[in-house]
Structures are given as structure tokens and as C-alpha cells.
């Protein structure tokens, strides 16, 4: 390595002595700054070559890659729905309601979810609007929407972060990885395929995966978004280009995750959405999807199994019948 660097260095030296002008313009191409009387960041830089790289990456791989990831996720979900259909409740509803999400949790969830959707729609407008919306809206109409979209995206970002932080706090414990239970859940594909019913706690392994995706990649998305949002930190163009690309890539990862999450939470699973809306789920649902959580609740005496007319396949001893 050092040797190669040395040779290159020597060559460069030779180059510079024999062709001073070539050397000068090579420096300019590499973005070496000169002096300028004009005030402004990077004003002394005659040529910044990374701009063209950024353009190629954004208009190329990010644009097409993003479309493939989104289109592919949607296609897979549609296919899955056609093949598997909705995961139905296997036992009739008991009428016994179990509190799954309290009011605070539900409000936080929907706050973040609504902002997420706004951010997705407005963010995608900036990347794909020119190709998709502009042709049928016309330039003036589209610019009107794009201006609004940019503004919405810019202000929703910090609000989204304000929702993400308490979310990590209140759901952190429920999402800690429990190797025994969670790997088994994954091996059984969460009961989505086939009829197996892998045990799960309050959050199953799939939900935990989504939580951690949001808390890691989503955090990256938030930090890069914040840096793009406030062109205040004196970051140079090259950093902004990099930050923008990281923002774009993480956006697609998180959107793909969200599509899966939304699918499973709505049409994918009977009875899941009502929990996040009303806060309560039916006992049958809880037993089918989150049996270990139910057992724990039982132990705490939070509900009575005796009132239920369904029986469980798991050993009776797990449950303490009401006196």
C-alpha cells in the first residue's frame, strides 16, 4: 500500500514539475480551493466533482432501486394475500376484552403513524413526483403541491422524531429480544405460513423486528433528515450529498418495513387493528397470537379465564382458574 502510494506520489511530483498547467487544472478538478473576494461557503472552489456523482446515484440507483424495493414489497404482499389470505381467528370470539394498548400508547402510535405516512408521501413526491405526478398535473400545479410537500416534509420530520423518542422508551422492555421464544417464532414463520402457533409475548418476534428497524434505520433517517432540514450546520455540499443518499436509502428500508407492518396489522390479521383502535382485543385473539403475554396477565389476575367458553390447547396448569 505504502509503496504504491509512494510511486503515485513520485509520479505526481514528476508530473507537476514537467506540466505546471496540467497540475494546476488537476488541482482545480479535485476541488482545491483558491482565493475569492466573494463571501460564501466553498466559494473558492471552482469545480466540485462530487455533484455529478450525487446526481448519478440519486437519479440512478436510488431512483430505480427505491422503485424496485417498493414495487417488490407491494407485489410480495399482494401475492401473499392471494395465497394465504387473512389469518383468521380460529376460535370464536369470547366477548371477553383484554386491554392491549392503553390510551397513551394508542395516541403515540397514531401520531407517529400519521406523520410517517405524511413523510412518505411527501418524500416520495420529491423523488418520483417529476416522473409520476408532473405529467398529469402540469408544471404549475405540481410545483404547488411540491412546495407544500417540501414544507410538510420539513416540519413533519422533527415532529416524527418527537414521537419516536417516547416510543422507544415505553416499548423498549416489551421488545427486548428473547432468543428462545423469538427464534422459535421466526422458525415457525410466525404462524403466517402453515397452521403452527409459535408462542409469543406481548410483542412477537416480527413486531420486535419492526420496532428495532424503526429504532435503528428510522433513527438514521431522522438524524440525516434533521441535517438536511437545517442547512445551518455549515456542512459542505459533499456532506449534504452523502447525507441525502443515506436518507434516501434508509427511507426505502423503513417504508418497505412499514408496508409489511401495515399489511399484517390490517387486512393480514383478523382482529389486530381493533386493538390499536379501541385498545382492547378479544381473549381468543390474544390466546392465538400472544399466548405468553396472556398467561402473564392471567398470573397478575388481570382477567378471568373461567369466564371464557373456549379452552386452550396449552397445559391447564399455566392458567389459574378464578376462585
Amino acid at each position: 500500500m505504502l509503496l504504491v502510494a509512494g510511486v503515485v506520489w513520485a509520479m505526481a511530483g514528476e508530473f507537476s514539475s514537467s506540466l505546471p498547467r496540467a497540475e494546476l487544472w488537476r488541482m482545480v478538478r479535485e476541488g482545491v480551493a483558491g482565493y475569492t473576494a466573494v463571501k460564501g461557503q466553498e466559494a473558492g472552489e471552482l469545480i466540485q466533482a462530487s455533484g455529478e456523482t450525487w446526481r448519478q446515484l440519486r437519479n440512478g440507483p436510488l431512483f430505480t432501486g427505491g422503485a424496485i424495493v417498493l414495487g417488490g414489497t407491494l407485489a410480495l404482499l399482494a401475492l401473499f394475500y392471494l395465497l394465504r389470505g387473512q389469518v383468521k381467528l380460529e376460535k370464536p370470539r369470547t366477548g371477553i376484552k383484554i386491554l392491549r394498548w392503553n390510551l397513551g400508547e394508542r395516541m403515540l402510535h397514531w401520531f407517529v403513524a400519521v406523520l410517517f405516512i405524511i413523510l412518505t408521501v411527501t418524500g416520495l413526491t420529491l423523488l418520483y413526483g417529476k416522473a409520476v405526478l408532473l405529467p398529469w398535473l402540469g408544471k404549475a400545479q405540481f410545483a404547488y403541491w411540491a412546495q407544500l410537500a417540501k414544507w410538510l416534509h420539513n416540519i413533519s420530520g422533527p415532529l416524527f422524531i418527537a414521537g419516536l423518542v417516547p416510543m422507544i422508551l415505553i416499548w423498549f422492555k416489551d421488545n427486548l429480544w428473547r432468543p428462545g421464544i423469538d427464534w422459535a417464532w421466526f422458525k415457525a414463520l410466525g404462524g403466517l405460513v402453515g397452521r403452527a402457533h409459535p408462542p409469543a409475548e406481548r410483542m412477537n418476534a416480527g413486531e420486535k423486528g419492526w420496532f428495532w428497524l424503526l429504532m435503528t434505520v428510522g433513527a438514521l433517517l431522522s438524524i440525516t433528515g434533521l441535517l438536511l432540514d437545517l442547512p445551518l450546520f455549515g456542512l459542505e455540499r459533499e456532506s449534504m450529498q452523502m447525507i441525502h443518499l443515506i436518507h434516501g436509502v434508509s427511507a426505502f428500508l423503513v417504508i418497505a418495513g412499514a408496508l409489511g407492518h401495515i399489511y399484517i396489522g390490517t387486512i393480514g390479521t383478523e382482529g389486530a387493528l381493533e386493538g390499536m383502535i379501541h385498545g382492547e382485543v378479544d381473549l381468543s385473539w390474544a390466546r392465538q397470537h400472544h399466548d405468553l403475554w396472556l398467561e402473564a396477565l392471567e398470573k397478575e389476575g388481570r382477567f378471568s379465564l373461567a369466564k371464557s367458553d373456549t379452552r386452550i390447547e396449552r397445559p391447564e396448569s399455566f392458567f389459574k382458574p378464578e376462585k
Binding site: G40, A43, L46, I47, Q48, G51, L126, K139, K150, Q241
Partner: peptide, 22 residues
Amino acid sequence: HDKDICIGCGYCFYACPFGAPQ
């Protein structure tokens, strides 16, 4: 360019090799 349409996103400034857009 058309200033009525521009949304001030700054992308042209990131891309331009000569630092022209301001």
C-alpha cells in the same frame, strides 16, 4: 429557470459543478 416553480430545495446547488445556484 422559472422562479414561480422553484421550491427552494437546493438540489441544483448540490449537483452543480460550478457552485452557480444560490
